[in-house]
Design a binder for these strands. Sequence first.
RNA 1: GGGGGCGUAGUUCAGUUCGGUUAGAACGCCGGCCUGUCACGCCGGAGGUCGCGAGUUCAAGUCUCGUCGCUCCCGCCA
Length: 591
Amino acid sequence: MDLLQQWRRTHNCGELRRKDAGAQVLLMGWVQRRRDHGGLIFVDLRDRYGIVQVVFNPATSPQAHAKAHSLRSEYVIAIKGEVALRPPGTENPRLATGEIEIIVHELKILNESRTPPFPIEDEAEVAENVRLRYRYLDLRRQRLQENLILRHRAAKVVRDYLSSQGFLEIETPFLTRSTPEGARDYLVPSRLNPGNFYALPQSPQLFKQLLMISGFDRYFQIVKCFRDEDLRADRQPEFTQIDVEMSFVDADDVQNCIEGMLEAVFREILGVELKRPFPKMTYQEAIAKYGLDRPDIRFGMELVEVTDVASRSSFQVFTRAVEGRGVVKGINLKGGGDRSRKEIEELIEVVKVYGAGGLAWIKVDTGGWASPIVKFFRPEDLREISDRMGGEPGDLLLFVADRAKVVNEALGHLRLHLAKEKGLIKEGTYQFLWVVDFPLLEYDEQQRRFVAVHHPFTAPKDEDLALIKDAPLKVRAKAYDIVLNGEEIGGGSIRNHRVDIQRLIFETLGIGAEEAEAKFGFLLDALDYGAPPHGGIALGFDRLLALLCGATSIREVIPFPKTQKATCLLTGAPANVDPQQLKELHLKIDI
RNA sequence: GGGGGCGUAGUUCAGUUCGGUUAGAACGCCGGCCUGUCACGCCGGAGGUCGCGAGUUCAAGUCUCGUCGCUCCCGCCA
């Protein structure tokens, strides 16, 4: 192996072109591939900028050629040589540098490499645990390099845009206090305060509100957040938010600002011009028509309520659901009438996941309706259902009858399932949607109390405030989610800046005055010192990036992600610690 | 906490139904030959705790039970 000494790169591996022919260059990088012809040896030299072919010719430099014989994949080398046009007919149009090659005069082997466990190529499909174990090698692959480069660029667009709009990037603490409500906290024991713990923030929510109270007016941060909950393809225990807060604004101002930011991101990163303003839909409409609070409106197949007609049937599944204060809704799979009974039965599995007991179906035929359940309906009722759902011959009508929540979730997901299966979703389109007017509260059966749908600092709509005592579930919040292609990428709200209303909300949530004082006293105090009207939003940066990259998991845009059990296969975290460390922290393990 | 999928050579997989010879393939790796390749080619070779542990059996990669890991989903995630 050789020392770097005074050798320095003159170029990277991706930038040399025809016009550079004749130049003396010094390149460094990794051996992507070696093609040893015995005489000539070709090496594809790789760095993050690209790949260039270098040629070892025994006639040019016998020493370098002899040395090149020992090169292997992923060796780190430096070469001095001359840029030459490739001989006619040997250009490689698949390489950006494919018109030229480097005739090597001198070779340094800066480091050797064990044979990598998998090839450093995008095409290599490697099990995820292997990739994570050797993440530093996985990250050498072009695909992930591009993802992280895109991540950097997107973050910069966000910073530049928000800065141009007068926002200040201000850091908030990671070591903070645990607050009730919300996700499980990651805790950090305090050595100096035995028995006490910090919590890593689920989001900088309260700090950004405090910054508004301090008068910073417009704040943002691209910031890590921590939630100790179970993982998913789009959920990691630590993830990144674009966190934004503004003073003297209402929901429209926040939304408008975020639209501008996303417009800049899509323009700069993808070259896509977004249509503005983004459409808005109330939560109520989203649930009614799409079954989910994050509708994918790139295609139709909307849910249709048929509870009233269903109640007139003698089909017990329907009538019982209606009697139990449930609902009956359906979707129309256009042209789905050619599905076999077995194929329809398979769809039951899709809805069962969400608690639905089954799936009723009716095929619309030229002559009428075909289904095991038509006999329970009067013809005029079938006509009514079919018409309401836009049924035409060849269509398949699918129904779920149950509690509203189950029906909506089951059909909402079934709708997505069918659309993906039938290819109804046009790839490469970006359909944004604001979902607004979320309910402020929902009832938690387990805890037997009201809980905040968004978070406890969200303001109720002015006109609904009076309902809070008598009909808390009817109170709508000044809360909004931003949905992209059916995925929630962010959510926010206007906050309670008046302490009386904030106290009222705590009270409604069953947080007594004493508890509120103990846990949120600092916020209530702050609100009491001239808090301006304010609100904001937080966007899931990883999720946004995954959509921008076309990745199916946010792990593809995170350099060192955790597994589904929240472990790091690279470092082995989490791990045991030295007993001495525990002692210093006054901790005893009890498992 | 629950349901599904996967786990066999360094990698990706076949073999597992219905137990039966020495567990195969491709790529990669090692050695040799090769002066215009770029998925170089040709010849030869090495490489396996079939995730792990019990059990059934004359015999287990294959069947049973348990367990571990990765993954998708439900619950959970204000």
